[in-house]
Nucleic acid binder design. Structure first.
Lengths: 196, 196
DNA sequence: GCGATGACAGATTTCAATATTTGTCATCGC
DNA sequence: GCGATGACAAATATTGAAATCTGTCATCGC
């Protein structure tokens, strides 16, 4: 018997590995099976298709980034600071991922493109964190919304407005000279738009 | 002699035509020459390379959209209204182009990708129009900027913040259900961020 | 004289034959 | 019995030879 019994988790790990090594275009189910020392038929016992396997890898990867940010969303500081910190942390995390291992990042961009449903759910989670900050800020009088504005809609607007600093489509810009001032400027604009 | 003598303008028109008919991948210099009834060598007399030809087409295409917007930027209305109108017009124009002829739009997206310099200049022109509106608004007390903020930087921030509604990378979203509310929300956020 | 031409070399693209991969399932061995 | 296997058909990707395209330039005809 192999070191451990074959589980979805072990398969996912091996898949990540294969993706890292061969890239999204060349990584095959046969490669994954080979990495695990099993036949590719066995992989299909745990995942119904290659697409499902890749989707699961995508989900796993996106879930990793929720933790840290959700801590920041709950931190005990004035809402404007928290909002700023949250956005800055999001940007810093993405920037680091894209900068440290561009190939791996490109791989995950391909996976994300294949699984827009999963990505949409991920974004939803993050927007809800934003909404929480905004809602609490409004409740404490630290932030202001035009009468009748839904905090969730405001959060979505803030998310959209800062897209250049978290949407992977812009990853190429994140290494540029003026990206930090640009982030500061948009951040300031958004915060001013949410001020009391 | 052909109907008219061979000029850069006639070549550009023929190139646009060929691009429209065959798409960016299949359009060749030989096709352009054939459409004009000349040898491809003659095209090279007016444009040094295929890339230069395509760049010129891109420039011509982008320049078309400056006119209408620059009129709006100069309109005689309160700055917040003008700003809103300008952003809405930009969004409407892009949306219409992408929606009416998706293939042609895709073609021009490819061209734009090939000529980021040209696109950057185009964006610069538009951001300057935005800056003009903001600057006048600030002068008249209709808009406000944090002390020491450059109107051009503020314009760039407003541009970045509204990217989802003018960046062709998001064109796929422009047909979606909730895009108008999303635009309104971001617009409101930005206007509030620039209010006195 | 001067713009247009088309033959040409080298780069790029196309296309069809070949090989690999995906997903299924009857069969195996523990 | 039950998870693992590998042979298999259909779909997809790779490959390399042939065709086309880009860019140059010596030559042509007006």
């Amino acid at each position: 018997m192999p070191p451990e019994t074959l589980t979805p988790d072990r398969i996912l790990e091996a898949t990540e590995d294969v993706l890292r090594r061969f890239g999204p275009a060349k990584a095959t189910v046969v490669d994954v099976a080979r990495a695990l020392g099993v036949s590719h038929g066995s992989v299909y016992r745990h995942f119904p298709s290659k697409a499902a396997l890749r989707e699961a890898v995508t989900e796993r990867w996106l879930d990793q980034s929720h933790e840290t940010l959700s801590l920041l969303a709950r931190a005990e500081r004035p809402a404007p600071e928290r909002l700023r910190g949250w956005l800055a942390a999001l940007f810093a995390a993405k920037r680091a991922k894209a900068g440290d291992d561009p190939e791996l990042f490109a791989t995950y961009m391909v996976l994300a493109g294949e699984n827009s449903q999963v990505v949409a759910r991920h974004i939803d989670t993050l927007v809800r964190q934003l909404a929480q900050i905004i809602q609490e800020g409004v409740a404490k009088g630290e932030l202001g919304l035009p009468a009748g504005t839904d905090p969730l809609a405001a959060a979505r607007a803030a998310w959209d407005a800062t897209g250049r600093f978290h949407d992977p489509a812009y990853a190429a810009d994140w290494g540029e000279e003026g990206i930090h001032p640009a982030f500061e400027a948009v951040c300031a604009l958004v915060l001013r738009g949410l001020a009391v």
